[in-house]
Write a protein that binds this DNA or RNA. Structure first.
Lengths: 150, 150
DNA sequence: GATTTCAGAAGAATGTAATTCTGTTTAAGT
DNA sequence: ACTTAAACAGAATTACATTCTTCTGAAATC
């Protein structure tokens, strides 16, 4: 189902998701109805997961990026801990990682101060959390969620 | 410029970016022309940065997430190294981090094997790279780029 | 090789939506 | 109160989305 035509459609949507269907159909050389049918199908099949607006974090006081490694208590219930972490505001990503059997979080806060507050008030207060290691980001060269689709 | 009405508009777009303007105008209680004007302005002011389609990585053989810490050579030219890393396919994020004065990368590959290939062929071959430490992700509990907008 | 079947595409029709423009209202600063 | 600029509504025009029917071509079946 991911043939050349769909690839072309997806590449267009990756560039600019809020583009009229009719414009897509022009660029891929299909009738609008055909494009619509293809997009609907990809949505239903879970190839397309949704459409997002990309906001400028700076304009919303979320300039500071940081990554936090979480070492859980030896007896911690890992899935529970994962859910607890995922529910905390401004924690954008929660990954369970190999090696140390811990979590890696990506967070976005206003500044290092609010980052520290989050650590102290929201994260280290969780019972299952044994210790943490924070990597603060000084500058970001690249940050996208666009995956390679060949 | 980021007032209550714009917040309402942005929240709607965060949920579902490919929503008709007319539908947004209904939900916020403004005329379609007013909503359009507000959105255009936010786009021009860089509050809205763009619109993206969210694809299912699994369907494009990009299931494996990993984070890679890069320790640069002491004499490395940091900006150059950052650009080199950012240009490599399947490296989605390149952050320059405090503490070790290194980079943290987020990558998406097919599996651990292709991850290993990338490391050996694309990353460790760069002169300025002294050493690396890879954190492979076993499972992801949460992964979003949606920032909190209060 | 003929025939059947079916997914995908086109095209037309209809109902909506996007966009532009104008005039009015609102709010802020003087 | 007066001025100025920004924001909004409403109408009109243009374009688009969506549905439905028909058609085509490629594979499967006989």
């Amino acid at each position: 189902m991911i043939d050349k035509k769909n690839m072309k459609i997806l590449k267009i949507l990756q560039e600019k998701a809020r583009i009229p269907n009719a414009e897509v159909s022009r660029q891929v050389g299909l009738a609008p109805s055909a494009v619509l049918e293809r997009i609907r199908k990809m949505e239903n099949q879970g190839i397309i997961d949704g459409y997002e607006v990309r906001l400028n974090p700076e304009r919303f006081s979320r300039k500071q990026v940081a990554f936090i490694e979480i070492m859980p208590q030896p007896d911690a219930h890992i899935p529970d801990l994962g859910e607890k972490l995922a529910a905390i505001a401004d924690i954008l990503e929660v990954h369970y990682t190999a090696g140390n059997d811990g979590f890696l979080l990506k967070v976005r806060t206003t500044d290092t101060e609010t980052l520290g507050e989050m650590l102290q008030k929201k994260i280290t207060t969780i019972d299952e959390v044994l210790s943490t290691r924070t990597i603060t980001v000084l500058s970001t060269i690249k940050e996208t969620s666009r995956i390679t689709i060949d």
